[in-house]
Design a protein around this nucleic acid. Structure first.
Lengths: 168, 168
DNA sequence: TATTGTTATACTCTATAACTATA
DNA sequence: TATAGTTATAGAGTATAACAATA
């Protein structure tokens, strides 16, 4: 615990954390993202690729356009990511017989295997990042973060890479 | 709160948050960073520039090399950032009389004024990001994050942009 | 020789916009 | 005419490495 501090006169100032909570969030979040990127590099993947694979695993057969919309990015960006993943043999663009304009994206067997390995890495990552906290603290942290995420309108499971800021 | 959920038989599975804590950290952290970037764009600044200005304000006269080391980036990257800030009139490269190889970086008056405005924006940002939490919850979140940051060896006040991962 | 800063260069990521094919 | 996907292109950001000035 780091909450006990001398509660003297300058209490208001002492209570104020040296850097704001929002800064800490950004700092620790970026660190977590960087460590995760490091871990999955052993699979030859970058975080965006893992995100795509995860979304397809969750809903097989979805189109590239639907990925672009959910991620809030432009369709041409999906093309590059899907190209690479297809090149690695992790997913396949299947033709949709009823509407041949779009691609029904599917994980290959190898893609499924990679996802299984990825889940192991993610669990280890979680443990490494939260090493300072016991189980109750982790649960508490999760609920606080979930409350912020919900209030801020974040889509569960979607990392806001550095999306285009809404035009001013 | 989002912690109450049907506690039935698959309890172990149900207790496990839908996405891990580390993912939530990265997600909320990236969101906070993006909202901050949006806010300071009204000052014509990007987050990296604010970071440089803040470090110089905290210790005037420091060299570009010391910034590069503390941030964990390559010196040539500092050149570009300092170039832009100097071009905007927010900081000055003063010659160090005792060792003319390095620059003693100083904020200009205008740079100081911009930093004052920035602090106002940061406070508003903090409030907006933490809107879902009351004061006690914010303090608790801060202490949990600070514990993680300390255990992970993060330098206080230094955002790990996306630094070069340590060579494997 | 070592150090500080700079420049030149190449590479990656990403958005924009024009294009193809289907509907 | 509208939609899914693709390609071509350009811009920003960043690391590498060679270089100049100073110690």
């Amino acid at each position: 615990m780091t909450t006990h501090r001398p509660t003297g006169r300058d209490e208001a100032a002492a209570q104020r954390p040296p850097r704001g909570t929002a800064f800490l969030l950004a700092q620790v979040g970026a660190h977590a993202a960087a460590r995760f990127a490091e871990r999955i590099s052993e699979l030859g993947l970058i975080p965006a690729e893992v995100g795509i694979l995860r979304m397809i695993a969750a809903r097989p057969g979805r189109s590239q356009r639907s990925l672009a919309e959910e991620l809030g990015v432009v369709p041409s960006r999906i093309v590059a990511l899907v190209d690479r993943l297809e090149g690695k043999g992790l997913l396949a663009r299947a033709r949709n017989p009823t509407d041949r304009r779009n691609h029904a994206l599917q994980l290959t067997a190898e893609g499924g295997a990679v996802m299984a390995r990825m889940r192991g890495l993610a669990a280890a990552h979680e443990d490494q990042i939260c090493a300072a906290l016991d189980d109750a603290q982790r649960a508490h942290l999760s609920s606080l973060l979930a409350a912020i995420a919900a209030q801020q309108g974040l889509t569960p499971g979607v990392h806001p890479g550095y999306q285009q800021p809404p035009p001013t």
